[in-house]
Amino acid sequence: MPLPKRRKIRTLALLFCVISFTTFLFSYTFRDPSLYFFKYAFRLSDTFFSKGLCACQRCMTELEDDPWFSERFNQSFSPLMSRENSLLSDETFKWWQWLQSERQPANFTEVVDELFQVIPGEILYMDARPERCRTCSVVGNSGNLKGSRYGNLIDSSDFIIRMNQGPTSGFEEDVGSRTTHHVMYPESAIDLENNTCLVLVPFKTLDLQWIISALTTGTIKHTYTAVTSRIKANKDKVLIYSPTFLKYVYESWLEGHGRYPSTGFLSLLLALHICDEVNVFGFGADQYGNWHHYWEENHLAGAFRHTGVHDGDYEYNVTMLLADKHKIQMFHGR
C-alpha cells in the first residue's frame, strides 16, 4: 500500500478514536455525579476570560470551582442596563411589572428612550483597572458596624458600594468615607456627592420615570408613598440596575424566596459580577441579635427580616454560604 494512503488511513482512524472517546466521556459525565464538574467547564472558561485577567492571589471565579457556585453564577448576565440591552423579554417584563404593580404603567420603551436622553446610555464606570486585582467593599447598614473601626479597610477597596439611606458623615471611623457606587430605589433615595455613581434599582416603570424627573423637572412626588422629588446626583454617573439581572438574582440565587431581593442582596450580587475580591461589611445582626441600622439608637428599629417582601433569613444563609466557600469575606463587626 502506498505510503500516503497508509498515512491517510491512520489519520482517519485516530480522528475516529478521538471522536468516539469524547462522545463516551461526555455522555457518561452528564449521567454520573462523580464527574459532575465537567458539566461546568465550558461555562467557567467563558466566565474567566470574559471578566478579564485577575491578578488577585485568589480569584472569586476560578476554573476549579464547585458545582453549587457554578450552577448559580452566570457572567453572561449584565448587572446594568444600557441602550443595547434595555429590551426585556415578555417573560421578564411581566415578572418585573408584577413586583410593584402599577394600575396604568407608561410605555416602557418610550420611558427608556427618554431615560437615555438624560443619563448615559453606556456603562462607563465599572471597568476601573481591569488589569489588576479589582476589589469591592459592600457596606450594609447593620448596627454591627458601630464601634467596628472598619473605616480604613473599607476605604482601601477599588469599588465601595453602599445602599439606601446609609450615611458616612459622623461614622467614618466605622464605615469609611469613600463611596463609588450607591444603590437605591426612589423610596430610599438620598443626595450624593458629584463623584459617586447612583445605581437605581427599578421595581416598576414609574421608578424609571422618577429618576428622569428627579434629575430634571421634579414633578413626580409620589409612587406608592411620598418620595423625594429632586435629588442631588451627577446625572452622567447614573446607572440602572437591569430588570433582567434582577430576575436572574431572584431565580438563580434566591430560588424564588421572598417577593424580590433586598437592596443589600442586589448590591452583593452586583459586586460578585464586577470584582475579583469581595469584602462584605454591615450584614446581619449585631452581637446581641438585634437587626437595626448603625445610625439608629433604637435597637428594635429598622428590622427587615419579616417584611413580607424579602426573605431575610434565606438571603443571609446564601451570603454565609458564599463566605464559607471563600467567594466573599464577611466582616461581622460587633
Score class of each variant (00 low, 15 high):
312 G>H: 01
289 G>Y: 01
288 Y>D: 14
289 G>S: 05
262 S>R: 06
294 Y>R: 04
275 C>R: 06
258 G>Q: 13
302 G>P: 04
257 H>L: 06
286 D>W: 00
303 A>E: 13
287 Q>A: 14
309 V>C: 01
297 E>N: 13
292 H>T: 12
269 L>H: 15
304 F>T: 15
257 H>E: 14
332 H>I: 14
292 H>I: 00
259 R>Q: 15
319 T>W: 05
294 Y>T: 06
313 D>C: 01
273 H>T: 08
326 H>W: 05
272 L>H: 03
272 L>R: 02
293 H>E: 04
274 I>R: 10
256 G>K: 07
298 N>F: 03
328 I>L: 11
266 L>E: 02
270 L>C: 02
319 T>N: 06
269 L>A: 06
270 L>T: 12
270 L>F: 15
304 F>R: 13
284 G>F: 01
299 H>A: 10
270 L>D: 09
256 G>P: 04
308 G>D: 11
332 H>W: 12
279 N>T: 04
319 T>R: 05
307 T>F: 03
292 H>L: 00
302 G>D: 04
275 C>L: 10
310 H>R: 06
301 A>H: 10
262 S>N: 12
254 L>R: 13
269 L>R: 10
293 H>F: 14
320 M>Y: 08
265 F>D: 13
317 N>A: 15
253 W>G: 11
278 V>G: 01
291 W>E: 11
295 W>V: 03
263 T>Q: 10
276 D>Q: 08
287 Q>W: 02
274 I>L: 15
320 M>H: 12
285 A>T: 01
273 H>W: 07
256 G>L: 03
277 E>R: 13
